[in-house]
Each structure stands twice: as structure tokens, then as C-alpha cells.
Design a protein around this nucleic acid. Sequence first.
DNA 1: ATTCGTTAGATTGTCGACAATTAGGCTTTG
DNA 2: CAAAGCCTAATTGTCGACAATCTAACGAAT
Lengths: 229, 229
Amino acid sequence: MALNNPTLETPVTTADKVFDSMLHAIVDGKIPAGSKISEPELAKQYEISRSTLREALNRLEKCHLIERKANVGSRVVECTIESLLEIYIVRESLEGMACRQAAIHMTDQEINEMQNMLKQHATAQALKDGIAYYQEEGDLDFHYKVILGSHNKQLINILCGQLYHLVRMYRIQFGMNSPRATRAFDEHSRIIDAIADRDGELAELLMRRHIAASRKNIEKKITQLNSDS
Amino acid sequence: MALNNPTLETPVTTADKVFDSMLHAIVDGKIPAGSKISEPELAKQYEISRSTLREALNRLEKCHLIERKANVGSRVVECTIESLLEIYIVRESLEGMACRQAAIHMTDQEINEMQNMLKQHATAQALKDGIAYYQEEGDLDFHYKVILGSHNKQLINILCGQLYHLVRMYRIQFGMNSPRATRAFDEHSRIIDAIADRDGELAELLMRRHIAASRKNIEKKITQLNSDS
DNA sequence: ATTCGTTAGATTGTCGACAATTAGGCTTTG
DNA sequence: CAAAGCCTAATTGTCGACAATCTAACGAAT
């Protein structure tokens, strides 16, 4: 699956491999959110020098997965609701624009591939709710394809290179196997239609609504949780 | 001026200082766009070790000012028209959203300050076109305030921490003292009005038009240049 | 008892040297 | 003469050690 390596660059240097390894560890919560990172300890754990580790830490910082303070050290970012909602705000605007650009710049072949992908998701969804996991992965795949379809390097870099690791982190750590599965599927379908029609304005509108709906869904859950307590 | 230090963190470590120094050098074109970066040479020039230099290079890469390839080295990014237009696409969506959020989250005091700033720009513009430079700086100040007004850390980080260095780089190296000065001022004014009215939808629309107008202005210039040749 | 200053320990920042990889010129061969 | 392969030089990646800085525990003074 291409998700794990969005930059499409196969890791070549050892710092690359450690970065990949830590990326997964953080996203999956094996290195807990908010925890402090001890350079000597991790260096020993990965059996590398501190220089190499620091190189990996720098790349993690580029993905906003860790934060560094001078002369103090690094921490894994905290998973707060506020932060999650902020990310959805950014996604709403950026992916909306990516969708508009995709309607302009995607090739017919790319559109075809995306339509086929959605059909696969449809059949996969037939063996239903049993595993909502596939739907989640499918959702990410869909968004990825749209973003890449924008053919805008800046957009792709920000969304795929930085933001999406955070999105995955939140999804996993908050255990968000969204109950919006079937509705999300319909929304995806209409977005592709708009792209296929080369209707950039509609495509952007639909994508923004799609993401805003997810955000509001999260907000609703939160207020429910708060009223429960 | 806060522009030079958008993260508001005073440089403390020597890598910080070298980063700051190189940031200016690249933005101002003293280190030419597209040029290769020799680590040993620059380390000697700044009288630091290669480790420290590489730390600075990592931060420059975070700003998308240089690009690295494994086992090959670093280059300053090229200033291409395509890239500039891509950046404006990103700005249009992100700053549009920032503006919408600013209409929601800005405090009355912040709005007041921005209105006062605009008045200053108005009088400064009275001693007119003589120096369009001030208008340019004023433009950046305006956009900065709006972005900060969104109170969204993700937005602020992407726009102020990463994209705006690139924007300044293009402005300086392409010598863009836009002829849109007076029109831009009017547009700024209406955007602030919308924010003061807490009309997020309108504020976003106006900001997107404002930036799209700049982009189209650039596109027009380019086609003119091409037809001249 | 609380607050402040001091000190010891640990952690981060910086350095110079070595190993791995690449780029370009040179030789060799068809 | 052109093209392929090798080899040298330079550059990047990695390492371990030292210096600067911060954290926290301890003790002294009010």
C-alpha cells in the first residue's frame, strides 16, 4: 500500500529507515503521544548514533509528529481534540482546493482508475460492516488519489507529506472507525462524478462538505461524551 | 518587524543563527535560486562544523527553501512560474479559510489593531507611489495579521512558518512591486469590514478573490512577456 | 515550613574524523 | 570515433567524544 510511503521515495539511508520505523511507532501509538523522547535511549534502542537519530527526529518534526525545544528536547505531539479540529479545518480548505484542481488537471486515465477503485470499495463494502477497517483505508486511498490528482506539488507535499500522518495518528489513537461509512461512500461517489464532469467548483464544494461533515461528526461525539460525564 | 521571525522564537543556538542568516541570504537571492549547496564550503564560510550546518539545512528544508537528495546533496529551490502559481493556489485556499476563521475567532481588540494598521497604511500611501515598497511590506503585514487572527495553530504554522518565506523570496527575486497597490488596499479594507461584521463566509470569499486576482495578474504578466518575445 | 540558591547529574548542542556513496574523467575496447 | 567500464577525488552519511545548558534534588536562610 502506497500510504506508508507517500513521498514515493524508498528509504535508502539508515536515517530514512529509522524515520520510517519511528513514524509507524508514533502513528500507532507504540511511542505514546505527548511522551518525551530521550535521544540516548532511542539511539541505543535502534542501535544507531545520536547524529543519525537526530536526523530522523528532524524529519518527524517536518511531519509535525514531534516538537523540539532548544536545549530541552523533543516530545511526541499531544492528541488533543482542539488540534484534531484544527487539522480538519486545514483539510477542508486544502483538500477542497485539491479537488477543484483535480477536476482541472486529472487525466482521463487517472479518473478512470479512481472510478474503478471506488467500484472495488463498493464490493468490498458488500462484505459489510464486519470490518470497517477496509473502509477506513479506502477512505484514505480515495483522498490520496484526489490530492495527487491536483498535480500541484505544494498541495501534495503539505497534505500527503505532512498532514496525513497526523490524520492517521488521530484515527488510530482515537479509534475512529466512523459510523459514516456508507454515507461517506456516497459522498466519494458524487465527488468523482463532479471531477469526471470537470466541474471544479462543484467538486470543491462537495469535498468541503464531505470533510466538514466528518468534523461536525467528531464535534458531536465530543459534546456527547462531555454530557455523559 | 515581526516578519523576519514568524515563529516568535528568538534564535538561541548557533544553528538557529545560521538558519536565520541563510534564510535571509536565500530569500534575498544572495545564495542564488537553484544553486547547489556545498556543505564543507558553507561550513567553513560560517565558521561552524558540518553537523551544525546540516541542522540549519534541515530547517531550511522545512521551509521548502532547499531540497535534499540522499547521497547527492542540497539545492536551493528553483524560482519557476509554475511553482509560484502553485503557491498562490495554496494561499488562496488556506488564507481564505484563515480569513473565515479570523472572522470567528479574532478578538475585538485584534480587529481594532488591524483597522488602525490599515489607516496607517492609508496615510503612508498618501506619500504615494514613490515607494511601493512600503505597500508591499504593508501587504505582508496585513496577511500576517489575518492568519494569526485565525487562532489555528496548524494554519499559522503552514502559512507563516513555511509558505511565507517562499512568497517573500519570489517577490524579491521577481521584483514584484505590484501595480495593484491601490486596488489591493481597497480589497484589504473590505476584508477587514467583513471580519469586523463577523461575516466569515464573505471574508473568505473576498480573501480568495483578493489572492486569485494577484495570481491572475501574474499570469497576465507572463503571457505578455511570452508574446513580447 | 517555605523559598531561594547551589550543586550534581543528565541531556542537548557542537565538533572533528571515518565510512559509504556518488560524480566525472580516464582508459580501454568494439 | 563512440561507448562502456573502471578508478580516483570529492561529497555526503555516520560515528563517538567533548562542551554548553537544563532539570531536579539537596541544603541553607528567612
